[in-house]
Computed example of a mutant assay.
Amino acid sequence: MLLAIDAGNTNLVFALVEDGVIRARWRIATDPRRTADEYAVWLHQLLALEGFGKDDVKAVIIGTVVPRALHNLEVLATKYFGVEPLVAGRPPVEWGIELDVVEPGSVGADRALNAIAAHTLYGGDLIVVDFGTATTFDVVDYSGAYKGGIIAPGINLSLDALVAAAARLPRIAMEAPKGNLSVIGRTTEDQMHIGIYWGYVAMMEGLVARMRAEIGRPVTVVATGGLATLFDKHTELFDEIEGDLTIQGLAMLYRQSLSPA
């Protein structure tokens, strides 16, 4: 099986993939100081709980937007799984899609992987909305080329900044509105929920509408990331929701690397 590792700014996701099917996945907070030994102790226990062992892992591929985390993940693969890891975007697993932007080298691995997976799964012109540390909107055209996009502050990042800057505001959990959908809050907590939740809905709908107009062709909007389903409750914005889009992209990139040039 393939161990696919998606190292994001907030979390690392480890997933076991077999024949394109995700058999198990685990998440841990990103900490570039975490050693390969620490990863191994944690991961081996989780593998055992799911009925797997380290010998079931035959290959490792890593996608990361945290360069400092890469070395210890590579050591994890070589020392504890006995395989030479592949790194997404680095030979021999280059993207295989056109990054049609001014600075292709600055495109995050997660955004390129999302583009690969979304194009393979859905085709046509696409807008991919990814709810991560940042909320990103990426445009992929009908040929599979990555055309650019938008970076906005992530939902939890916005909440943290609001609470940190305003001494009397409480820390709240992000959740979808229930029952009454009024946008006039009667308590401080209600007003914060409204500001973040409906503020993000309005932002997403407005930005996607502008992107659609600029693209000028029918577009499929694909959402990924943990909060995608939260917003899908009260907007018709998303045509497809795929929570594992980045992992899917890693698995697809790995399969491409096995094909003869």
Rank of each mutant, 00 (worst) to 15 (best):
M203R: 03
R33T: 13
M204T: 01
T235M: 09
G226K: 11
E94S: 14
E94W: 01
E240A: 13
L43T: 00
P104A: 09
T187G: 07
G105A: 08
V17E: 11
W42D: 09
P92E: 05
P170L: 03
I215R: 03
W198F: 15
L12F: 13
P92M: 08
L49A: 14
T246A: 07
L121F: 14
G8E: 09
L2M: 10
I22M: 15
A202R: 11
T10G: 03
E205A: 03
V128D: 06
P91Q: 13
V219A: 05
G206M: 13
T220V: 07
A112F: 07
L169E: 06
V201D: 10
P104R: 05
Y254A: 03
V128T: 07
F238S: 02
A167N: 02
G51V: 02
G225P: 02
M252F: 08
G154V: 06
T220M: 01
V83Q: 05
R186K: 15
A112R: 08
Y80N: 04
N11G: 01
D19P: 00
G123N: 10
L16M: 14
M192T: 01
A77C: 07
Y197R: 06
Y122W: 06
M192I: 14
F52P: 00
Q256K: 15
I28K: 03
D138I: 03
L16F: 15
T188L: 04
I127R: 07
S257C: 09
D130T: 09
A145W: 10
L250Y: 03
D190F: 05
L76T: 01
M204N: 01
L207W: 10
V21S: 13
I116S: 09
I196W: 09
E38Q: 15
H193P: 02
A112E: 12
L46W: 10
T235S: 12
T35P: 01
G179M: 12
A7Y: 11
I127L: 15
V101Q: 08
T136P: 04
A69T: 09
K79H: 12
N114W: 11
L49V: 06
L126K: 04
Q45C: 11
V101R: 10
G249W: 04
E50I: 00
I22R: 14
A117K: 08
W95V: 02
P170E: 02
G132D: 10
E98A: 08
A40H: 06
L162H: 04
R23G: 01
K54Y: 00
Q256L: 14
A152R: 10
D100T: 01
L258D: 00
W26L: 00
A145S: 15
G216I: 02
K58G: 13
H234W: 10
V128C: 09
T64A: 02
Y142K: 14
R23F: 12
G63E: 06
M204F: 14
A202D: 14
A161P: 03
V102K: 09
K79G: 00
W198P: 02
I184V: 12
E94V: 14
A40L: 07
I61Q: 04
L258N: 04
G179P: 04
I22Y: 02
I194Q: 11
A36R: 04
D232H: 08
